[in-house]
Design a protein around this nucleic acid. Structure first.
Length: 195
DNA sequence: CGGTTTTGACCCGCGC
DNA sequence: GCGCGGGTCAAAACCG
């Protein structure tokens, strides 16, 4: 396996045996997340996270450095859909209509880069230091006109290899995916590269 | 020049 | 009220 971007000489953690399609396997097993897996939380409030992690996304392909971006993009889009399906019912039993917290969902991904290309365009509007964390948390807003979906990205001190992304709101517009960026080209090349 | 990032100030809820 | 933690604003800086 060789792709031009072998600049990531740390091919030590490269595992060519994992098919990329494995990233779309969602299980409900929310315990014992392996270190190489992503997990998804569902909560309606920053503090009161509904304890039952609804989804455990099992992806063993995290360490494929070259494919990281594409994998994460799949995670974002797929999980966002999953979340909307799951919360439509959960949101209805929220009695006090006035204080309805905006639903959020978060998941963490093992990645070297903080900025994960999920296909949407974001504008950063803030950055704050987080307590007990040496990495700051960044706040982004979707730049699509009229769409005020927000997300925040944060790296854990505990495990610097993990990036936690929290989404708030749902996009009501198509994805703006640039088809000519480097990652796209790179992934296109990988598709045709035999293992 | 227009869009984005940076960064300190500001705001707000909460516990004491 | 006061301080703390977290979230947002907005002016200035930055950049293609």
């Amino acid at each position: 396996m060789f792709f031009p971007c072998s600049s990531s000489t740390s091919s030590a953690n490269y595992d060519p045996m994992i098919p990329i399609s494995a990233t779309n396997n969602i299980t409900t097993d929310d315990h014992h997340m392996g270190m190489g897996s992503s997990q998804v939380y569902n909560y309606f409030d920053g503090r009161d996270r509904s304890s039952n992690g609804l989804l455990g996304l099992r992806s063993s392909a995290e360490n494929l450095v070259g494919r990281e971006v594409l994998i994460n993009k799949d995670h974002h889009q797929y999980l966002q859909q999953q979340y909307s399906d799951l919360t439509t019912t959960a949101r209805n039993k929220n009695k006090g209509e006035k204080k309805t917290r905006k639903p959020k969902y978060a998941f963490q991904t093992r990645s070297q880069v903080d900025i994960l290309d999920d296909g949407y365009r974001w504008r950063k509007y803030g950055q704050k230091a987080v307590k007990n964390n040496k990495f700051p948390r960044s706040y982004y807003r979707c730049t699509y006109q009229g769409c005020n979906v927000k997300k925040q990205v944060q790296r854990l001190t505990k495990d610097e290899g993990i990036v936690v992304t929290t989404y708030e709101g749902m996009h009501t517009h198509p994805i703006e995916k640039p088809s000519d960026n480097f990652e796209h080209i790179l992934n296109q090349m990988q598709i045709y590269t035999p293992f």
